[in-house]
Design a binder for these strands. Structure first.
Lengths: 202, 202
DNA sequence: GATACTTTTTGATTTAGATCAAAAGCATTG
DNA sequence: CAATGCTTTTGATCTAAATCAAAAAGTATC
C-alpha cells in the first residue's frame, strides 16, 4: 500500500481539490487540466465505505480530496491499522497496481469523504503523456518511501511511549478523528498499552 | 536511505554492469548509453570503505555493479544495520538528495566492490532528458517502497524466528556473506537472540 | 431514564526478547 | 603453534509490552 507522505508539510486544510493540489506542485496546461478532470472520477463516500478488501485485486488509484481513509490488514484474525490517509494524498495498492498480486491490505472510509478514482492503467497513460506529471509521480513515490522509512524507524527503535508522543506531535488532528483502537494498532501496540500510556501509568 | 528492491527477481549474478542492467529494463539509444557511461563514474572500492557517514550530507547516487554495501545508523551508541545492498541496485540517501537534510544513515562497503557514482543533480538532468529513464526511475522508486513496506510488515508482525526464516529463504546468499551481528541488527534483534534461534534453542 | 452496545481503562499474569557476563570457536600473525 | 583478537554461543536474569479478564465510562435506542 502506498500511503501518505506526511513528511511534506501538509496544510491543515480539510479540503484539497485535486487540481489545486497539482497546481501547487507543477504547472498545468489547460489541456492537462482537462484530461485530469476527465480521468479522475469524483465520488462522495459515506463513513464505513470499503474502498478495497484485504486479499483482493484493485488497480485503482485514489486521491483523497476530503476525509480520512484507513488502510489495514488482518493478522491472526485481528484488524491492524497500516496507515491513515488524509486529504491531499494519493494512494494505491502497490501489490496490485505494480506487482500484480492481491493486496494484503483493505481500505475503508472513516469519515464521509470526497475521493477521486482512476484505474492505474489510465493514470499511466496520462502520466506518460505529460512531462510535469512524470516528475510529480516520482516525487509522490519519494514521499512514500520517506514515510515508510520513517515509520520503520519508529517501530524498530522507538518505545511505545516515544511513538505515541511523536504521533501526537505530528498528527494531533488524527488522534481526535479516529478511535483509540485504530491508533494503537497503527502504533504497533495494544489498545490496553496505549490506554496506560495516555494515563501516564507507564 | 533508498535501498534495494529485493522483491524484483534479482538474478544471482555477482556482477551486474550498469548498462546491462538498464538494457534489461528499457531500450537504450546509443546517445543515452554514451551519456550514462560518461555520467556515472566507476570506482573499485575496498572492504571497509565508507561511502557515507551518519549525519552528513551526501547527494550522491550509487549503483552497485559488484559487491555488498551495508547501510546503518547509530542508535544509543549501537550500530544498527538498516539494509544490505547487493549488485544490481541503486541507492541514495533520501534525506539528503530529496529532502535536503543530513542523512541519518551511513554506508560502508562490506566486500571489495565496483560502484558507480553520480551526483543527484546530474542524474536528474540525465533523467529529465530521456523518457525511458523517467519510467525506470519511477520503477526503482516503486521497488523501494515495496521493500520498505515489506520490511515494516516483518518487523511489526513477525516474530524473530519468522523474520530469520524468511530472510534465509529470500536471501540465502547474504547470510553467508556478512557477519552475524549485522544480520541480527538488520532483523531488529540482538546477536544473542539470533544465535539462539539458529541453534534451535527457542 | 433504564437497557444495551461500544469504547476505554484497570488489574493480574505471562512471555518474547533484551541485557549482562562469560565461555567457546575460529582466524590471523609473528 | 602459542598469542591475540574477533565472532559466535551459552547461561542467568530482567523488562516492556502482550494477554486475559473484568470493570468503568460513554453513547445510542427505545
Amino acid at each position: 500500500m502506498l500511503g501518505p507522505s506526511h513528511n511534506s508539510f501538509r496544510p491543515i486544510a480539510y479540503y484539497m481539490d485535486l487540481i489545486l493540489y497539482l497546481r501547487q506542485h507543477i504547472t498545468l496546461s489547460p489541456e492537462l487540466e482537462a484530461q485530469v478532470q476527465e480521468a479522475f472520477k469524483k465520488e462522495e463516500l459515506p463513513k464505513g465505505y470499503r474502498l478495497l478488501s484485504p486479499n483482493n485485486f484493485s488497480q485503482k488509484v485514489f486521491y483523497i480530496e476530503k476525509g480520512v481513509v484507513r488502510t489495514y490488514y488482518i493478522k491472526d484474525g485481528k484488524d491492524i491499522t497500516h496507515s491513515f490517509i488524509l486529504e491531499g494524498t494519493f494512494f494505491v495498492s502497490i501489490e496490485s497496481a505494480f506487482f500484480n498480486s492481491p493486496s494484503p491490505y483493505g481500505a475503508e472510509v472513516l469519515e464521509q469523504s470526497t475521493i477521486r478514482t482512476i484505474p492505474y492503467q489510465d493514470l499511466e497513460k496520462v502520466i506518460d503523456g505529460f512531462q510535469p506529471l512524470q516528475k510529480l509521480s516520482r516525487l509522490v513515490m519519494i514521499g512514500a518511501v520517506k514515510t515508510f522509512s520513517d515509520k520503520l524507524y519508529s517501530i524498530q527503535f522507538q518505545s511505545a511511549q516515544e511513538r505515541y508522543n511523536s504521533m501526537l506531535e505530528k498528527f494531533p488532528d488524527i488522534m481526535l478523528r479516529v478511535p483509540l483502537g485504530h491508533i494503537a494498532s497503527y502504533l504497533g501496540i495494544t489498545q490496553e498499552t496505549l490506554s496506560r500510556i495516555r494515563a501516564g501509568k507507564v
